[in-house]
Structure formats: C-alpha cells, structure tokens
C-alpha cells in the first residue's frame, strides 16, 4: 500500500530489513465500531526484545494479535494497514494464517497447557507441521525445547505426566517450550508473567533474555520495570495510539513525550 517507487522500495527493503523482522505501517483495528488501534507503525528488529507498554485497555494485546493474525478468529474484528514479515505482507492474498502462525509463535497471558502429557504438549507443533521424521527426532526436538525453556531438569522424569499438573510458572515455561518447539522466527508474549509469582517471573525474564539470541521477541507488559529489565526497544501505547517508540534505555531516562513521562513516573496507569 505504500506509494514508494520501485527503486526506492528496493533501497528501503535492502538496508534496514537486514535486521528488521517485522514492520507495521498505519495499522488500524476495529472491533465492530470500536476503533481500538489507530494508525500504528512500528518496526520490530530481529534478535531483539521489543516491549509494548501502556495502561490497560490501550490496545497492546490487540496490536500483538495482529502480528500473527490471531484477530482473524474474532468475528467482528477488522484490521487494515500493512504488516510485513521479512518484507512479505502477512495479510496478503497468498499468505495462509495457519502457516504464518507457525512462523510467529505466541505465549498467552494465562498459561494454557493442553490437557495432555508434558511431552505431547511440546510435541504438538512439531507433529502438526511434520518437523520430525522419526520418534527419535521428535524426542530430540522436545528435549531441546524444554531445555531452552529451562524446564527440562524439572520434568525429564515425568514427561508423561499431564502438563496441567505443573505449577503456574512451570506451566508458562511449558507453553514457551511448546511455542519454540515449532521453530518460530518471532515469539509474541502477552503479559507472560502476569499470573506468576516473583521467582517464576524472574525465571521467565532470564529465559526471554536467552531467547533473544535466536528469535525476535515481542513482549507485552504493564510493568515498566519488566520492560526495562528485558527489552532493548520499547513502544509506549496510549488509548490506541503509539505515543513513543525507541531504545528502552532512552525511553526510561529521557522520554520525549509528556504522556510517556507521566506513565513511567507512575502518574497514571
């Protein structure tokens, strides 16, 4: 939808997309007549943690769910604008949202392990996408995912136990393992720690920092301390608009917008 000339477009995609994983341009989202997201443009770099912060109800979840087209499942939700993954329009005609979601994984606010064994939870994605040819390969994928999610040591002896029997923090790490077992390129996390205690939160934050080596991570959080701890880029949302976007360190020390200033100093939120 951009009106760029072909040669201009070339230069634009060549230089920055080497490190830009996803780009959003003028994205609007409507729930029926409710205009929830207003013309948001954001660049999400690769191998970086990007945090979305803002008071609740400002549209963080809604925008995050545009990035893997989860909003398609909400009946009265309409998304306009352009979102590209590696330069490819994810709302384009020839994109199947099912395949897109295998590339852009998601971890939800509340841990939602399937009522299956721990093993089957992690093997779910690899199985439906045919990532493993043999049982041994599948075993290896499961072990690697659980190891990366810092859960392997705790569950290696009870892979057949139901995933729903784990503690809250373990369940959330299981959900992260489940997401990374599918080998996504981008990992979206919607307030992944909001249902967890402090220790579990610390474990997940450590994990997010490690995931940055291989993935582009987008994390929604309403805790500014968390954003400051785990992210390199921060986007501040307010009432459906993107107020400010930039380096996390700069945002927290020297915000350029008064609303950001007010939010991070706790004047509202």
């Amino acid at each position: 939808m951009t009106m760029l000339q072909p040669d201009e477009a070339e230069t634009e995609t060549e230089a920055p997309t080497a490190e830009l994983k996803m780009t959003a341009r003028d994205v609007d989202v409507f729930y029926g007549t409710n205009h929830a997201i207003k013309s948001i443009s954001v660049d999400i770099p690769d191998k970086t943690v990007t945090a979305f912060i803002g008071p609740s109800g400002c549209g963080k979840t809604t925008f995050l769910r545009c990035l893997n087209r989860m909003n398609d499942t909400i009946r009265n939700c309409r998304v306009t604008g352009e979102i590209r993954l590696d330069g490819e329009d994810i709302y384009g005609r020839d994109i199947d949202p099912v395949q897109l979601r295998a590339r852009v994984g998601m971890v939800f606010q509340k841990p939602n392990p399937f009522p299956k064994s721990i093993y089957d939870n992690v093997a779910y994605g690899p199985r439906i996408h045919g990532l493993a040819g043999t049982r041994a390969e599948l075993d290896e994928i499961v072990e690697r995912a659980l190891t990366r999610a810092a859960l392997w040591q705790e569950v290696r002896d009870r892979l057949d136990a139901p995933g729903t029997g784990l503690s809250g923090g373990q369940q959330q790490r299981l959900c992260i393992a489940r997401a990374i077992a599918t080998a996504p390129e981008v990992l979206l996390m919607d307030e992944p720690c909001s249902a967890l205690d402090l220790i579990a939160t610390a474990q997940i934050e450590e994990l997010i920092d490690e995931l940055r080596e291989s993935y582009s991570v987008v994390i929604v959080t309403h805790s500014m301390q968390q954003a400051a701890r785990v992210s390199q880029k921060t986007a501040f949302f307010h009432l459906g608009v993107l107020v400010e976007y930039g380096e996390t360190s700069r945002m927290f020390t020297n915000p350029s917008d008064q609303r950001t200033q007010d939010y991070i100093t706790g004047r509202f939120g």
């Binding site: 099912v98 979601r101 590339r103 009522p115 994605g125 439906i128």
Partner: peptide, 15 residues
Amino acid sequence: VPQTLREGSLALGAT
C-alpha cells in the same frame, strides 16, 4: 473447553 486452549492451538499454527 476454555477458549484459551482453542487459541493456544491456533497460535501454534494448527488448523
């Protein structure tokens, strides 16, 4: 069945 399970599966790229 909780909606979160449905979404969890769809978000993994399941049909």
